[in-house]
Design a protein around this nucleic acid. Structure first.
Lengths: 204, 204
DNA sequence: CTTAGTATTAACTATTTGGTTAAAATATAT
DNA sequence: ATATATTTTAACCAAATAGTTAATACTAAG
């Protein structure tokens, strides 16, 4: 045996299929057979490459939660001015989620259903973004650049407005009769609407 | 046979148990045995009262989605002034969700996973709140009472900020080290923080 | 008390589903 | 070409799980 290339078909097709099925149905609702079918391979091959459902899910979930989070940190922790930071956070975060609209609900749902899976990862990897952002806001308040606002609430407001529409997407589309394209447009607007809305509220 | 009272124990205990288990694990993750255990009865009794899992779920889901929605309409569609309306919506809606923090994620998740279950209900029952609220906002803009803002985005902003924290609750608690009580406090604050935040942004 | 309907259970069945095995096909090295 | 390792499959297996059945306990009416 020599170097085994892992960029080949079956192994990769399985990962893509697993992602699709897990995102759509969640851990509890996903069937190994569905994944095999989606990948166009025999079910036994799943277990050949990834020991069991648990392990396979863990991989998908880890990738998903990493994608859901840490890139935020780069923006939030950067040294740019507050208003610019808010603008680029909203814009970039929504942009990321547009490429994977299922991601937020998938991650948040699984965290709710199996908190243990997330707990360790949280205490380890993340000091969590928060601190630096909070400091910056407090600074701006002290300098009377913005009104006195609660940094925690401001932060939660911002991510709520960015993320929630993806979670409520099907419901929004149904209730307002939007189609896929109109939803995309709507979220494109939000990239600028949310920052405007926030800044309008806190600026002096 | 005479009048059958349905306010008795088993039947009710099952509904309570089913609600608990479905809320916690979702349709796909819930086990009939879990529900039976939780209700302290034999599994066969579940099928005696509610033919099958599907039917039982349908009941719980219908009640949940009714609770998640329509009471909003009363506030949103009422004739009170805009700012008051925003205030009472946020306050009352958060208050409702505090009594049932699992509700938003449960409903939104199941709507995502089985959109068909919701579609009919939407086209039928609800003209959806929207219209009257939108009209009122456009009016206030025309009268130069508030800045020109997109009613749709304003509406989504408001419900995002109210609902999202419940969906992200475990994650928020983990990442910030909140306990149950602190979360409650935080949401109590939001009942006034969100309206302040919104009004500050749109007022002239 | 007896009877007829109702509630409840233990035991069972059928199906779904995650996982295994052993053999076949395919590729790789010598 | 032959041997060796890797990939892939068909056929199974065992556990889990929704749903059934037939018998038993319970309740209320006459």
């Amino acid at each position: 045996m020599v170097n085994k290339k892992k960029n080949d078909t079956a192994h990769e097709r399985i990962l893509i299929a697993a992602k699709k099925v897990f995102f759509l149905k969640g851990m509890a609702g996903a069937r190994m057979q569905d994944i095999a079918d989606e990948a166009g391979i025999n079910k036994a091959l799943l277990h050949y490459y990834f020991r069991n459902k648990e392990k396979l899910f863990e991989l998908i979930f880890k990738e998903a939660s990493n994608q859901f989070f840490p890139k935020i940190a780069d923006i939030i922790d950067s040294d740019i001015p507050l208003f610019e930071k808010i603008e680029s956070f909203c814009s970039e975060y929504i942009d990321m989620m547009q490429q994977n609209a299922y991601l937020p609900l998938f991650v948040l749902n699984e965290v709710n259903k199996q908190p243990h899976r997330f707990r360790e990862r949280f205490w380890k990897n993340r000091e969590f973004l928060f601190s630096k952002f909070v400091g910056q806001i407090e600074m701006e308040i002290k300098n009377r650049k913005i009104k006195p606002v609660s940094p925690a609430h401001l932060f939660i407001n911002m991510i709520s407005m960015c993320i929630f529409p993806f979670i409520a997407k099907p419901m929004m589309m149904m209730s307002s009769g939007m189609d896929e394209l109109q939803f995309r447009d709507f979220m494109d607007q939000r990239k600028t609407e949310i920052p405007k809305f926030i800044i309008e509220s806190i600026k002096r």
